[in-house]
Design a protein around this nucleic acid. Structure first.
Lengths: 214, 214
DNA sequence: TTATTGTGTTTTGTATACAAAATGCAGTGA
DNA sequence: TCACTGCATTTTGTATACAAAACACAATAA
């Protein structure tokens, strides 16, 4: 039973699924042999997948004691937003200085389906939102930036609170950002996207505080 | 011959050495068995170390074809400076808002040995510089920021052009940054450190261009 | 009761074995 | 000459075996 390209990749994807849907719970110890058996593979490619997850901060390894599903607390989620603020701000600045019509076109394309709609499909908008933010990074052509951004992104995907704010709230902000980039206003573009992300962060902080004081 | 804690860690360190001192050349294919034999270990812990290096962008894996030492070109080095600009800028902002005397004390301590000196020991200064920049990140207490910064840092260490500019050129800039943080001027602190990193980046770009036109 | 030791079990870390893909190269045909 | 085919070799990806560390828990001593 060998099919050969790279077993660890589907395992990696499957493990992520298992983390996000709760099959593997936060803080849970991963008993390699059990998971390996469950997935019908050996420990070797499983280990490869686990190491990839460790490098994404989703799994924590304590030598000789085992690997554990990491528990992501609210502080960490908020800290990630701070990183995103810095990275996406820089990306917006780079793109504004680039003045590439193709870039503008691609960014606008994310949200054009929603401009004429009254009642916006929230799921579709969430996808567009994610696309927009990752596109912003990719279009800079700065590979290390993309690599680094990946880490901030992954947690959101796993934790899964895709949209912090409503489309009503954010659609105009998105276009303001794109317009600033199109106009080549680098400072404005950076400030706008940072404010945009910061607003969501503040909202999360509030949610966190009210939850605590309940 | 088993000593058990984690063999892959010393292997990982050794491999980094081999990359930075040229024992393993850029673009070279890593033949697992050969390296394993050379280091006196088996492929299993070697693979673990290689995967860690892959996640640090120092090694590239092409499935079924092998793992290769990545070649870092000048563009990538410059792009990393852009990332650092964003991340350290944000760190300076956070610290300025924190107003912690302990933070200021630690930052100042990096460069205090050099204030009274006439002829600065360049190696010692390079170490202090590195310490300062990574401390700046660590003191924010933002773990994801630290994680992400790690990637931007590593290449510099490997490529090894530790100091781009002379101590003469940068010592005052460092203190200006620290002073702005101490004064709680978040905008200033962010701007100053970004300008600081940007200057080095510009210098690198110039070096790159002159080299090309030779 | 609580601490502690000892023993059996589980689980990790490493080495090794083996199948399939990739590679290299000689031999053939154009 | 060059391109192609087929076979031997190398190298990867995966499974498995095994030693040592971690763990669980009962028996013992205080």
């Amino acid at each position: 039973m060998i099919q050969h390209t790279d077993l660890s990749q589907p395992i990696y994807i499957r493990l992520k699924e298992m983390i996000s849907n709760g099959e593997l719970k936060q803080g849970e110890k991963i008993i390699q042999e059990k998971i390996a058996e469950k997935l019908g593979v050996s420990r070797t490619p499983l280990m490869k997948a686990l190491l990839a997850l460790e490098n994404e901060y989703l799994v924590e390894s304590i030598p000789r004691r085992g690997m554990f599903i990491r528990a992501l607390d609210e502080k960490e989620i908020i800290d990630i937003y701070t990183c995103r603020e810095a990275l996406e701000g820089m990306a917006a600045r780079i793109l504004a200085n680039k003045k590439s019509p193709l870039v503008i076109k691609k960014l606008k394309a994310c949200f054009e389906p929603f401009t004429s709609q009254k009642d916006i499909d929230v799921d579709a908008y969430a996808k567009a939102d994610e696309k927009f933010h990752s596109l912003l990074i990719k279009l800079t052509g700065n590979a290390p930036l993309d690599k680094v951004y990946f880490f901030t992104n992954i947690h959101d995907k796993i934790v899964g609170h895709g949209l912090v704010r409503t489309p009503d709230d954010t659609l105009d902000e998105h276009f303001d950002i794109i317009n600033a980039i199109e106009a080549g206003k680098a400072d404005d573009a950076e400030q706008l996207i940072r404010a945009h992300i910061n607003k969501s962060k503040e909202l999360l902080i509030n949610q966190y505080n009210t939850k605590k004081s309940e």
